[in-house]
Design a protein around this nucleic acid. Structure first.
Length: 473
DNA sequence: CTATGGCACGGATT
DNA sequence: AATCCGTGCCATAG
């Protein structure tokens, strides 16, 4: 058994321990499923209505004032605002008002699937930026996607069918293509690759010839004809192969076949499904120097409590039922307690995490601080495995809209890798690995030459000798 | 002789 | 207990 000692909750039966661990390691989607199951067959449980903040409309799980609005705005950055909110408004903001949009109830409701389908997943992301009158367009496009996430119908058909201008259609389509999975809604694998490359180039080094390789050598690329591809681009077959390798490992011609599903380990869920974030991180009033707002999404519409009527009924229950009802009551109690504890742990975790990684969240990969689960465990005075469970499988949505697995907060090498990308980007003449190593040491990063080489290839950057032959276009 | 990638080892992580 | 990651050593290519 794993020793867990969280503050505030003392009596710990084995059942309590076991359930705490299980709940902690669930994503909000999985949690919703099991809570709904319990609600359905346990009469002692009752769902309390959602409380909504009057000012900002957030739906809140707990009693008391809205942590975002009612808090006096002392811009103390160090202290993020962490609280639990429900996912409900997330859906309703997407769906209200248009019959073309997939209705709320049909999204997550359909039985077992703990996740939503591709159209819903994309819609969720673009909803905030979508004008009301553009929603039918988005719905039309999204429902026309094929299994690969590509759009097979013609654009003018949409514009004619819905009586809207091509401009609008293109605008919406552009939004869609730039959301996860990037390139979704393209009309061909080639187009999808181009968009992905474009987006990737904003945050990463990409081989200069990759774009031409896709644009002009697409058919050679897909057939692995590296020598011909090299000919076309004026480079050797080996170099062409490296480019092809970069493309195949960083880009995905069929955005619908999700990489995303496989990101979550240990899950049998099929790769065609997408997941909600478990955590939303945003800034207050879009001000960069304000505290971070961290919402831990709860999968259910309200908060759970013991049904008062049930408790009364228990007192004069028929003989043969008392035992069963008593069990139900205890089970319900346990669930509520454990849920509270889960929220508690998540909140503590996110508090520290956002404090430590504030710069990473706001300014990107370069500012990632190396962090280990073990060190967090010490700070929070919990067992390592608690942190592990709390982190594993969960995803967060950053203020800039990126979805990342929570485990990325613990990626030790990310900052160094980004630094390497930048060094290479700004280099005058190609630097060798040992030169890069020296530069990193000056910046205070203690890494070995061999490691730099590994990172470099991880980022798809060619070796120094090969780099200088390829003039940037 | 130098820069790089492969293999393998030990320590951290899960 | 199994796996991942950084690193050192060594062979190879240029």
């Amino acid at each position: 058994m794993y020793p867990i000692h969280l503050q505030q909750i003392r009596p710990q039966t084995t059942a309590h321990l076991a359930q705490t661990m299980t709940l902690l390691s669930m994503t909000s989607n999985e949690l919703r499923q099991s809570i709904e199951a319990e609600l359905a067959n346990n009469p002692a449980l009752e769902l309390l209505e959602v409380k909504r903040c009057r000012t900002c409309g957030r739906s809140l799980m707990e009693n008391g004032p809205c942590p975002v609005c009612s808090r006096p705005h002392d811009p103390n950055q160090a202290e993020p605002i962490v609280f639990t909110s429900t996912q409900q408004d997330y859906f309703s903001s997407v769906s209200n008002g248009s019959q073309h949009i997939i209705p709320v109830d049909e999204l997550p409701e359909d039985n077992v699937a703990p996740s939503i389908d591709l159209p819903g997943f994309v819609l969720q992301q673009i909803a905030p930026e979508l004008e009301l009158e553009d929603r039918p367009i988005a719905a039309h496009i999204l429902t026309s996607l094929d299994d690969d996430g590509l759009l097979q119908i013609q654009l003018f058909e949409i514009s004619r069918y819905l009586h809207v201008s091509m401009e609008r259609v293109n605008h919406v389509l552009d939004l869609i293509r730039r959301s996860e999975p990037i390139g979704v809604g393209s009309s061909s694998p080639q187009e999808a690759l181009m968009i992905q490359l474009d987006i990737l180039a904003k945050t990463q080094y990409v081989p200069p010839l990759a774009e031409r390789a896709i644009r002009e050598g697409m058919n050679l690329l897909s057939r692995h004809h590296y020598s011909k591809l090299g000919e076309l681009l004026g480079i050797t077959p080996q170099e062409a192969e490296i480019i092809a390798q970069f493309i195949s490992s960083n880009l995905n011609p069929y955005p619908g076949r999700a990489h995303w599903g496989s990101v979550r380990q240990g899950s049998e869920s099929n790769p065609h499904t997408y997941h909600h974030p478990d955590i939303l991180i945003s800034t207050l009033h879009q001000q960069a120097n304000s505290p971070l707002v961290v919402e831990i999404l709860s999968p259910i519409r309200g908060s759970l409590q013991i049904n008062a009527l049930f408790r009364k009924a228990l007192k004069n229950a028929p003989e043969e039922k008392t035992e069963k009802w008593q069990q139900d009551l205890e089970k319900a109690n346990l669930l509520i307690k454990c849920l509270r504890q889960r929220g508690n742990t998540m909140r503590q975790l996110m508090t520290i995490l956002t404090q430590e990684q504030r710069n990473f969240i706001l300014q990107g990969d370069k500012f990632m601080r190396p962090l280990t689960r073990a060190s967090l465990a010490i700070q929070l005075d919990v067992h390592e495995s608690t942190i592990s469970r709390a982190v594993s499988g969960k995803t967060a949505r950053l203020p800039n809209g990126r979805m990342i697995p929570l485990s990325k907060f613990f990626d030790r090498s990310l900052s160094v890798r980004t630094l390497i990308r930048e060094i290479v980007k700004h280099e005058v003449s190609p630097l060798t690995d040992s030169q890069i190593t020296r530069m990193l040491h000056k910046e205070g990063h203690q890494v070995a030459r061999r490691t730099v080489a590994k990172y470099r290839s991880m980022e798809g950057i060619l070796p120094a000798q090969t780099r200088h032959k390829l003039p940037s276009p």
